[in-house]
């Protein structure tokens, strides 16, 4: 554990709390992509299968349980409790275009040819693109509630912080995880456009609006 990873994980934790706060306080999941949330639940469930047979640490265990539970809870809120506030007609990204290629990539790039390792690889690739339906929706509507942009910023910060973490681990532990690093860099790059608008508009007190 190093400071970058800890801050990254805390940022990830914060992003989920912000998302829950957004849904509860506005009593609405408007502006949130159900598809992205469903992909995250898939990511956590396929990645954290090792909960059942591999003990890393209490920290690791608690975080994994939290990420699985909170992502499923968000799906419940969107699908049942606040269902009328979710508009599927603007959440139109075709997730099969993500799931298929990620499955193929997992078959090509993995550390061991076992089911848990293939699912782990799949989850890494899927996480790297899981935000796309959300960003696509943002692009379509051209605007977002400020709290939703804070959610995305915290999520992006989590990914960005994992990069110095890998550099640090490379130097101090001689540890490199090429699959996670490659997918992680792609994932972080997807946020660059969003971050530009977030820093130049939202943090200056303006509404998140994309140029027409």
């Amino acid at each position: 554990m190093n400071i970058f990873r800890l801050l990254g994980d805390l940022s990830h934790l914060a992003s989920i709390l912000i998302l829950l706060q957004k849904i509860q306080s506005t009593r609405s999941c408007r502006g949130i992509s159900f598809k992205t949330q469903a992909l995250y639940a898939t990511v956590f469930i396929t990645r954290y299968l090792d909960l059942f047979y591999d003990w890393v640490s209490l920290y690791n265990f608690v975080m994994k349980i939290f990420f699985i539970a909170s992502s499923c809870y968000v799906l419940y809120l969107m699908k049942y409790k606040y269902r009328p506030t979710h508009d599927p007609s603007i959440d139109t990204f075709r997730v099969e275009y993500l799931l298929g290629p990620c499955a193929v990539l997992a078959l090509l790039f993995h550390y061991r040819f076992t089911l848990p390792e293939l699912l782990w690889s799949f989850s890494i690739f899927l996480e790297s693109v899981a935000i796309l339906p959300q960003l696509f929706m943002l692009q379509r509507t051209g605007e977002a509630e400020t709290i939703t942009t804070h959610y995305l910023a915290a999520l992006g910060a989590y990914r960005a912080l994992y990069i110095p973490n890998w550099i640090y681990r490379w130097f101090t532990e001689d540890m490199v995880d090429p699959i996670a690093v490659t997918a992680g860099i792609v994932q972080t790059a997807l946020y660059l456009d969003f971050f530009y608008v977030y820093f130049t508009k939202v943090l200056q007190g303006q509404k998140f609006e994309l140029p027409a």
Binding site: D54, V56, N60, K64, Y162
Partner: peptide, 10 residues
């Protein structure tokens, strides 16, 4: 090298 003890990152 890849961590032989499994995946310790979240």
């Amino acid at each position: 090298a890849h961590d032989e003890h499994g995946h310790d990152e979240l």
